[in-house]
Amino acid sequence: MQGLIDFLSQGGYAFYVWSAFGMTFALLIAEALVLRRSRRTILQRVGRLARLRMQNVPPGEHR
């Protein structure tokens, strides 16, 4: 327990160390999540457009 507190306090410089590390990993993880979500959105939209096409075009004429 004491070890954990020592680790977290970083010799009294916790604010500086964790602000720097926190922002870094928050941004990197956020970037990864945003990329993942935008991929889903794009695929959904493309899929929706594809289904619209399927409905509008008679099956025989498709492709």
Binding site: R39, I42, V46, G47, R48, R51
Partner: peptide, 28 residues
């Protein structure tokens, strides 16, 4: 994907995926 969404290969890919089952949140 965004730029080529109207091209044939993206359509083929999406159509193939769409034929396999209902495209939902897990469509990707």
């Amino acid at each position: 994907l965004l730029r080529e969404q109207d091209s044939a290969w993206v359509r083929t890919m999406v159509d193939a995926a769409g034929a396999g089952g209902p495209a939902n949140a897990g469509g990707g």
